[in-house]
Nucleic acid binder design. Structure first.
Lengths: 85, 85
DNA sequence: AAAGTATTTAGATAATTGTCTAATTATTTA
DNA sequence: TAAATAATTAGACAATTATCTAAATACTTT
């Protein structure tokens, strides 16, 4: 849970997840959408990957990133427990 | 959302929320349950209050803290949107 | 009013985090 | 094989955060 919350605790990373909801993108395509250097985006992608919120798939020269929402189920049930629901 | 995620991004604060799920407690009672000084707990309570995850109710010399899960609804719908559900 | 209890505020410090530039690795194409 | 392209890794730096001790505020009880 710690890694998950840490990953979610940044607006850029949350926006990356929202963008990936529309479909897979390469690291470069993701970086294009932000006013930030590629190494910075690469670092954010790494944290998202650590939390298993995205998976990286290398195809030739490119690395495609895919949203992975499975790990959010754990978060959902934590919230529901808090809400006694 | 930023304040909410920031508040949730700490194991002590998440544990405070879990404890308050069982019922309201004073700041001192909360602090007793942690191996941490009262000022540190007070600081954590302040961040939870900023995120509106708890509310503070002063009764005489004591301040009772109450869990407030309403703000979690926003988080739930953000997660559901990500999951396309 | 003074002493005691509950809690917060202030200020300091070490650790973590987000960002950058420069360098490196890996792949493709001329 | 050399040059170009995609992406990461390394290293530095400023900002933020978690924690502590000491001091201040607020209320209660004697």
């Amino acid at each position: 849970m710690n890694t998950l919350f840490r990953a979610l605790n940044d607006p850029t990373r949350r926006q990356i997840l929202e963008i990936l909801r529309e479909g897979d993108l390469t690291a470069g395509e993701i970086a294009e959408r932000f006013d930030m250097t590629k190494p910075s985006i690469s670092h954010h992608l790494d944290l998202l990957k650590q939390a298993e919120l995205v998976s990286a798939d290398k195809r030739g020269q490119f690395i495609y990133y895919t949203l992975n929402t499975t790990v959010l189920d754990e978060l959902l049930s934590w919230i529901f427990t808090l809400k006694n629901q």
